[in-house]
């Protein structure tokens, strides 16, 4: 029985309407990029969920290391002054 073992995994990103970013919708297997886009259309946009699709080979995605996540995302911690809500003295002043 023929297998599809050599079909790569593709990550699918859908732009739901003009003006919005492409958002990760899920993944699928396909033998090549063209089939991946067609399968993505059939699988992820059966109800007009998208006006544009991206497919990316999963192996081409570089991600941060989950084991290092605490250290990796440490920098913004304790830097509340990067948020508008940090500045209390100006509360109640209009248009600010």
């Amino acid at each position: 029985m023929s297998q599809q073992s050599n079909w790569p995994l593709w990550e699918v990103f859908v732009r739901s309407s003009r003006g919005l970013s492409h958002v990760h919708a899920g993944s699928l297997h396909a033998p090549d990029a063209q089939m991946a886009v067609r399968n993505a259309r059939d699988l992820y946009t059966r109800r007009n969920e998208g006006v544009s699709l991206w497919v990316v080979k999963s192996t081409d995605i570089i991600s941060s290391d989950p084991d290092e996540k605490d250290a990796f995302f440490e920098s913004p911690q304790g830097k509340d002054y990067r948020h508008a809500t940090y500045y209390k003295a100006s509360e109640g002043v209009k248009h600010l």
């Binding site: 029985m1 023929s2 599809q4 033998p31 090549d32 089939m35």
Partner: peptide, 19 residues
Amino acid sequence: HREGAWVREAAAAYAAKQA
């Protein structure tokens, strides 16, 4: 699954040829 085998094989062969 058996009846779909030729479709999977053709798609894989086409992809290999394109590559």
